[in-house]
């Protein structure tokens, strides 16, 4: 296996007003899209700042692209691109000027910079607005220019904080495809901080859920779903809700854990997909007509909400004194 693009252990950061990140252990392989998920204040932005070397950890260590962000931050930042939560464009400059300044600060010579800026403006459909000051831009336009800025030096590692925020559906789709292509076709590593779980589901190879500075879980969405839901849930579509006799027959099939009637037919939990034919046989033998039998696909969003549900008291906004400690959260989450 190649050297990880990101590896950190025990990464911790405490600010004057409290703990922002605690004991973060993470490993991300090159060419991977990592979805960094969590509610506001979870520690996502702090993680990005630590990994890109603009914050020093209180404890722990990290290596990003083989470099120590704490001591080699300057070298590291030459190889990373960051889209911050706020677009961070200077409103008094035009889009082209904002991009040109970034290119110059990244050490790109003026001629190459002009070509690259032109390409990116074209890529994000902003060529016709390139000479306007950013002051009058819509949120979506600002986001596109900020994204273009993050990509200007074709970085090996991208930190993208809410890249699709404010974009229309078509532009959102385009950005998600771009992220996917950067990782799959170009081998770029992407850390995607987002609240939009459907988008993360489309591109993320790996997910990490943070809550109040603590990493609850990380891994591939598929593996995590398998851990959370070891049984396969089959949605059986029948001409009417399953009868009691059908449910009894299903309960007797080896490998069936549970069976319940639904308005569309039945939901059956099985231990292995090999059990599916036996389930259908049981229904047909009981006089039922099966129109479809589909396993429920568990997505990244399902995994996220499953963990969030375990932390429900926190999300209901307990008073500080009643709120569980971080260790309690971890225990709850891994229970």
């Amino acid at each position: 296996m190649s050297e990880p693009a990101i590896v950190c252990a025990g990464l911790r950061r405490v600010f004057d007003d409290g703990l922002a990140l605690d004991s973060l252990d993470l490993e991300v392989q090159p060419g991977t899209v990592l979805a960094l998920l969590g509610p506001n204040g979870a520690g996502k932005t702090t993680t990005v700042r630590l990994l890109n070397g603009i914050l020093r950890p209180t404890a722990g260590w990290s290596r990003v692209l083989g470099l120590d962000p704490q001591t080699q931050g300057h070298e590291l930042r030459h190889r990373t691109g960051v889209l911050t939560e706020n677009a961070g464009l200077d409103d008094r400059l035009t889009a082209r000027e904002n991009l040109m300044v970034t290119a110059r600060l990244r050490g790109i010579d003026p001629r190459t910079a002009r070509v690259r800026v032109g390409e990116l403006l074209e890529r994000f459909g902003m060529t016709s607005h390139a000479g306007q000051r950013c002051q009058g831009y819509s949120t979506g336009q600002r986001r596109r220019i900020a994204l273009a800025r993050a990509l200007i030096s074709d970085p090996e590692l991208l930190f993208l904080d809410e890249p699709t925020s404010g974009l229309d559906p078509a532009a959102t789709d385009d950005v998600i495809d771009l992220i996917d292509s950067l990782a799959k076709d170009r081998g770029r590593t992407v850390v995607l901080c987002t609240h939009f779980l459907a988008e993360a589901t489309r591109v993320a190879d790996q997910m990490a859920i943070l809550n109040r500075g603590l990493l609850l879980v990380s891994g591939s969405p598929r593996e995590l779903a398998d851990e959370l839901w070891p049984e396969i849930e089959l949605q059986i579509e029948l001409e009417a809700p399953a009868t009691e006799s059908m449910l009894d027959a299903l309960a007797r099939v080896g490998g069936v854990c549970s069976a319940d009637a639904t308005p569309a037919g039945a939901t059956v939990s099985i231990t292995d997909r090999q059990v599916t034919p036996a389930v259908i046989d049981a229904i047909v033998s009981g006089g039922g007509r099966v129109f479809a039998a589909l396993p429920t696909e568990r997505t990244l969003a399902d995994v996220y909400f499953a963990y969030e549900e375990r932390l429900d008291p926190v999300h209901r906004g307990l008073r500080a004194a009643d709120a569980p400690t971080n260790s309690t959260i971890l225990e709850q989450a891994s229970a």
Binding site: N52, E75, R77, H78, T84, G88, T102, L105, R106, G107
Partner: peptide, 14 residues
């Protein structure tokens, strides 16, 4: 105030 500082800090500028 313009919230442009963070993006500047993320650049390779000493």
């Amino acid at each position: 105030e313009r919230r442009t500082l963070e993006s500047l800090l993320h650049l390779p500028v000493r």
